[in-house]
């Protein structure tokens, strides 16, 4: 696993947030973990097949997920209901689709699966990955993590 594989995902995240929400995410710490454990409550998992087998996991705090959907809809969101998680799932889908274009430029050809949503506190997302690359982002709407696990 190479840290450079993370770059297309970082670039796609940055671009989608700026285009759709006029929000510039600040990239924080990059770390390598054994497992994907998150304390964030709204998680979007996008499975990946092809030259890279694994998944991309977007983990948002409840507050940030609500704020993102409020910024798109102009309506007040109070709970992580199906509307909010589905909107966030599609956001993960769009970022990941863009990331596969970037990975293709590294000669890595991948397909992505429809988003799966996991909500709750202190989640351990089990994957068969050896390691998980994690990058933290900070935005005016809150903090979120993007994990890339490769089998």
């Amino acid at each position: 696993m190479d840290v450079k594989n993370l770059n297309p995902i970082i670039a796609a995240t940055d671009s989608v947030f700026q285009t759709m929400l006029s929000v510039k995410p600040e990239k924080g710490k990059v770390s390598i973990q054994e497992d994907l454990v998150t304390d964030k409550e709204a998680n979007v998992i996008i499975g990946m097949t092809g030259d890279i087998k694994g998944s991309i996991v977007y983990s948002f705090s409840k507050d940030m997920a609500l704020k993102v959907v409020e910024a798109m809809s102009g309506m007040e969101m109070k709970e992580l209901d199906k509307f909010v998680t589905s909107a966030m799932g599609e956001l993960g889908n769009i970022i990941s689709g863009k990331a596969t274009t970037g990975l293709a430029e590294q000669d890595l050809f991948c397909d992505i699966a429809p988003p799966q949503i996991v909500t709750g506190k202190n989640i351990n997302i089990t994957s068969e990955a050896d390691k998980v690359l994690m990058v933290k982002f900070n935005t005016e709407l809150g903090e979120f993590d993007v994990g890339f696990s490769i089998k």
Binding site: V16, T19, M20, M72, D81, F83, G89, E90, I94
Partner: peptide, 22 residues
Amino acid sequence: DEDFVMEFSGRLLTWLINHVAS
């Protein structure tokens, strides 16, 4: 079916914004 409609409309929200904005 509440869940069904909520899921569809949430996805539509993000999809349309991305389609127009990008």
